[in-house]
Design a binder for these strands. Structure first.
Length: 723
DNA sequence: CCACGTTGTGTTTTT
DNA sequence: CACAACGTGG
């Protein structure tokens, strides 16, 4: 292997420094993925390390598959026995194979956010929790945070203050964990937490893995949380051949518990750490890097490094100002179409990045109008779509009889006349007899408690038993087809409703995916793919894993999803305060810094050119908001950015000055006949003021008005005079 | 006892 | 807008 032909001297050092802890600070586009691949190949080919003694943790399954692919194709290495995957998939693998030592069975179900919410809603009803005081998502976020910090319900008050609020959260957390266990299910955070606990509490198992993993590599180390830190620590402690790769400037997952300190303190956490910096960027021209550097230097507490490049292109990032989100989308799509012609490019060299998934909708419309192929990555994950989850629920309950969530999902889908009352009776029967719902449905005694619905339950039961038999015999693809025809889904979705049509399209795609899986599984293992094999494979799949970068279509995704990817032309849309930085992050400096890194990540995806844009007005379903250009735009030196309309950029600063108050960020402007946002009015008692929001029309309009000294009042239209 | 229509409520980012 | 909770008619 001639390393010096293909790697620069720093990259070579990374590859050849195999013994002891190694920290690689790799800037955007510095070839870190390349390094990881070569390093793995080097370990196997030159150092003669057995593939099963190597662990590589990647950020996505896609990256893992690419690594395996490259090893096989470029180096002829059989990567079957190499341990490569995401933290979650590796944990699932460990937990399933060590299942005697964990409280769950090996065929546990993995619950996604929809399942989590559904469990939570039931718990709220069961122990009578006020949804207004204890916001579901907020409580789930707290629970997630506990798990990422390895705090079990029993340890909760060692780390949390004791008050009415936390006591209730604790109660919910405790019950939540129990319900999941009863259902033989884990959420994503459980995968990490239970694996760490398993290794921590079982010396034998821990020794087995630390013995096994002689060499460990972690990509995107800046986005690891405490549980992941601990996990890595436990499996690499014996050999200490741990190589972590990351870039603190690209840390964008703190809201998921990721702790940037993991990378900042690596040199303190391990002894004799060798640190190598990769600062040469091979992706972007200087014009783009200058802008990116100018932006990121506004963040404090970073590893000191400076990214440079030899690529010289005159393409400065360009900034566009548009009237509203529709013209923003239109303009971007037009620009893409023009650029494609001019540069003779392929559509797959373009990407549109945005902060929130909701922003994709206007682009969809624009692309459809212009008849240009596009592909949205992310948003609602394919496997999370309602119609797919329905089918998956059948598969899950047949695979894991304890999965009450899935049973409840399908007990009356498709409609079989089993309603709320009957379902409640089954639940009561189950809890009286300490059974799962599945067992209850099969139980003869249950029928005594039911009226005329008993017959329907009987039919349901026979179907379940039939499917269960079939699922054990048939290959997964055949079984899914049988199931879909038994359920007569084609008839259910055979309507004129475009949504139903698209749902059935998705079901067909799902069937195709199971067929593909079946074929591959048989090729790889020589065995018949059964239900159980399939479920393990898909539960951790994401949209990103399946997307096809070669397809001739423009790609659309969030900035988070763009991490690790690169495109010739990058469009960054919605650069407005409230969107980027997002309104939920706007009053916290640490969070603002993360939003800044997000923009940094977005900019550094580009190989040829960056286009940024913002809209003056933006519609968010019901209301139109008048926006303010993102504060980040002001941080670029004037000569770094080309403004498509020079006067408008100049206006960024002045328009920001005018509206310093945060309240003006969320002004709702409706095209009302009588009152308008920003209109000056006077009130008999409160004096002069400015309208901040309008709800309703004319005399009956409910107005929010800012009077002198910033006092906000809600007033009915008939009480104010326009000036 | 279930289906369906109406009202109400909440909206970052993801494994 | 999208989906959950609620209330009424069949």
């Amino acid at each position: 292997m001639e390393l010096h032909d293909v790697l620069n001297s720093e990259q070579q050092k990374v590859v050849e420094h195999t013994e002891g802890p190694l920290l690689v600070l790799a800037g955007a586009g510095s070839g870190k993925t390349r390094c990881v691949i070569f390093r793995t190949a080097y370990l196997i080919k030159v150092k003669k390390i057995k593939p099963w003694n190597i662990l590589v943790v990647t950020f996505t399954n896609k990256a893992a598959n690419e690594l395996k692919d490259r090893l096989e194709r470029t180096f002829g290495i059989n990567s079957q026995n190499l341990w490569v995957g995401t933290f979650h998939s590796l944990c699932a693998r460990i937990l399933r194979s060590e299942n005697e030592k964990i409280p769950h069975d090996a065929n546990f179900t993995i619950y996604d956010q929809v399942d989590q919410l559904s469990v939570m809603r039931k718990i709220y009803k069961e122990i009578d929790i006020d949804k207004k005081k204890f916001n579901l998502k907020k409580v789930l976020a707290i629970i997630s945070k506990q798990k990422n910090s390895l705090i079990l319900p029993k340890d909760f008050f060692n780390f949390n203050e004791e008050n009415f609020y936390t006591e209730t959260v604790h109660k919910i957390y405790t019950r939540y964990q129990n319900v999941l266990l009863e259902n033989n299910a884990m959420d994503f955070d459980d995968l990490l937490m239970y694996t760490v606990i398993l290794l921590h509490e079982n010396d034998k198992i821990q020794r087995k893995y630390e013995e096994k993993f002689k060499y460990v590599m972690i990509d995107e180390y800046q986005d690891t949380n405490y549980a992941q830190f601990k996990l890595i620590n436990l499996v690499s402690s014996k050999h200490q051949n741990l190589c972590v790769v990351g870039d603190d400037d690209q840390a964008i997952y703190s809201w998921r518990g990721a702790d940037i300190k993991n990378i900042l303190n690596f040199e303190k956490d391990y002894s004799n750490v060798r640190t190598i910096k990769l600062e040469q960027n091979y992706r972007s021209p200087k014009t783009i890097l200058d802008a990116a550097n100018c932006l990121i230097k506004n963040n404090s507490s970073r590893h000191n490094k400076r990214l440079w490049t030899e690529i010289k292109l005159k393409n400065k990032p360009e900034l566009m100002k548009l009237d509203n989100e529709r013209s923003e989308a239109e303009e971007i799509v037009k620009k893409i179409s023009k650029l494609k012609q001019k540069e003779d490019a392929n559509y797959n060299e373009f990407v549109i990045l945005y902060r929130t998934n909701a922003q994709s909708r206007v682009f969809e419309n624009a692309f459809t109008r212009m008849r240009i192929k596009y592909q949205i990555i992310g948003g609602v994950n394919f496997y999370q779509r309602k119609e797919i989850k329905d089918i998956l629920a059948y598969l899950k309950i047949l695979n894991n009889h304890q999965d009450n969530e899935s049973l409840l999902r399908i007990i009356n889908f498709p409609r079989r006349g089993i309603g709320k009352v009957t379902i409640q009776k089954i639940i009561d029967f189950a809890s009286d007899n300490e059974m799962t719902l599945y067992q209850s449905v099969l139980n003869e005694d249950l029928l005594k408690y039911l009226g005329y619905t008993a017959q329907r339950i009987k039919e349901f039961k026979h179907k379940l038993q039939k499917w269960e038999k079939e699922s054990k015999k048939l290959a997964i693809s055949e079984f899914v087809e049988k199931l879909i025809s038994d359920l007569e889904l084609d008839e259910i979705y055979d309507t004129d409703d475009p949504q139903d049509i698209s749902r059935f399209e998705n079901i067909k795609e799902f069937v195709a995916a199971t067929e593909e899986f079946s074929e591959n599984f048989k090729l790889e293992t020589g065995e018949d793919p059964l239900l159980n094999n399939y479920l393990q494979n898909i539960s951790l799949q994401t949209d990103l894993d399946n997307y096809n970068e070669n397809e001739e279509s423009v790609k659309l995704m969030t900035m988070h999803n763009a991490k690790g990817l690169e495109f010739d032309y990058v469009f960054i849309a919605g650069l407005e305060d409230g969107l980027l930085p997002h309104s939920r992050s706007i009053d916290n400096e640490r969070q603002i810094e993360e939003e800044r890194r997000l923009l940094y990540v977005a900019i550094t995806r580009a190989k040829r050119k960056v286009f940024m844009s913002y809209a003056n007005m933006r519609r968010t379903f019901n209301t139109v908001i008048s926006t303010i250009p993102s504060r980040f735009l002001m941080e670029f030196d004037d000569d770094l950015i080309r403004k498509s309309d020079a006067s408008s950029f100049y206006n960024i600063r002045s328009s920001r000055k005018k509206s310093k108050k945060k309240t003006t960020l969320h002004i709702k402007s409706e095209s009302e006949k009588y009152f308008r946002i920003g209109q000056k009015i006077s009130h008999a008692k409160f004096g002069k003021g400015v309208i901040l929001s309008v709800n309703g029309k004319g005399k009956n309009a409910k107005l929010t008005i800012s009077f002198s000294k910033g006092k906000l009042k809600k007033i009915i239209g008939s009480f104010v005079k326009t000036l």
